[in-house]
């Protein structure tokens, strides 16, 4: 078990290393992206350009530049932006992370509640009107482009119905929890709902499928033979087993979202989380920030994968040899 965990951790590190190299190479392969030209200003003379290039170490061989950047990012932790000179990157990511966390955990709470409830209702009412209805809503929800839904929500709450029903909706942005808990929740409410809508459907569908399978298992038949009510079997027995797949699914989704997959939602609602930070950095081609964000994001994806893998290996020893 320990060796499996170690092997998993090593390969995770390898993946992160490869990603950092990929980002670095992609960046410097782009024409017109020379950070020195932008830092130096738009009518700088060739000599000035050369000084700026030297000052930022951009005239060194590419692998030295890579090592320097990693040194500043991880060891000295004083990597600074190319665009906002003097702005340290690591604190920026650390400052953005709680905002993403607030967005994702709130949304997760909503989609888990809705997804589990929907899945149970659908499974319990199989063959009745409500089952296909829940499943249909689920399908519609996974078929909506995230940013489009966000923009439509904005259009309704900020413009079309802003003067009547939704006058209480704030105009985007973020208020920290410590500053004003009520405003915090108010600013996050629609982002939460929008993000949750995209996931609740799939969770309901997965859970329903698992529940339906479980209801045909032997232990359920046994319970049924004991004369327990269907509802009780569903909740007490079938649900317990079916939740395992929901948990691992959740692990992966949560990891990916914390790692920046909520980018579109953050951009649409103007939440200054990690996704937004990455988005602005990409628009500005601010390599240090892009690097920090991508590594931060990949870290969570890799971590979530590893945790889910190890958890599975723990539950099912056969996986360890694989």
């Amino acid at each position: 078990m320990l060796s499996f965990t170690l092997r998993r951790a090593l390969s995770a590190l390898l993946v992160l290393f490869a990603i950092s190299i990929a980002v670095f190479l992609i960046f410097f392969a782009t024409p017109g992206v020379d950070p020195a030209a932008r830092i130096a200003g738009r009518s700088a003379s060739p000599a000035t350009l050369a000084h700026v290039r030297a000052a930022f170490g951009l005239n060194r061989p590419i692998f030295i530049r890579y090592l320097l950047m990693m040194d500043h990012l991880f060891i000295k932790r004083d990597l600074t932006s190319y665009v906002n000179v003097g702005l340290k990157v690591v604190p920026q990511v650390l400052k953005a992370a709680p905002i993403t966390l607030a967005l994702v955990s709130g949304a997760a709470a909503i989609w888990l509640t809705m997804g589990i409830f929907g899945g149970i209702v659908a499974a319990a009412n199989r063959g009745k009107f409500i089952d296909p209805l829940v499943m249909f809503i689920g399908i519609a929800a996974v078929s909506v482009p995230a940013y489009w839904l966000g923009e439509v929500v904005n259009l309704i709450t900020q413009s079309r119905l802003h003067s009547s029903v939704f006058s209480w909706v704030p105009s985007g942005g973020y208020v920290s929890l410590t500053q004003n808990p009520f405003e915090w929740a108010l600013h996050l409410l629609f982002p939460w709902l929008t993000l949750a809508a995209l996931y609740a459907g799939i969770y309901a569908r997965v859970l329903r499928a698992e529940l339906v399978n479980a209801m045909n298992e032997d232990y359920v038949r046994t319970a049924r033979a004991k004369g327990l009510s269907e509802r009780r079997i569903l909740i007490r027995h079938a649900l317990r087993c079916s939740l395992i797949s929901i948990v691992s699914l959740f692990g992966l989704d949560f990891g990916a979202l914390i790692g920046g997959a909520a980018l579109l939602t953050e951009v649409v609602f103007g939440l200054p989380g990690v996704g937004m930070l990455t988005y602005t950095a990409l628009q500005n081609l601010d390599l240090p920030v892009i690097m920090a964000c991508v590594l931060y994001g990949s870290f969570f994806v890799v971590l979530a994968n590893a945790v889910v893998d190890v958890l599975y290996a723990f539950l099912d020893p056969r996986v360890r040899v694989a």
């Binding site: 200003g41 738009r42 700088a44 003379s45 000599a47």
Partner: peptide
């Protein structure tokens, strides 16, 4: 500080070109 125009404006001052170099 490598002012953007140090080599295109302010090098007009005598000794400026040496400062740019």
């Amino acid at each position: 500080v490598s002012n953007p125009n140090s080599g295109s404006w302010y090098n007009a001052i005598a000794g400026g070109d040496a400062c740019v170099a």
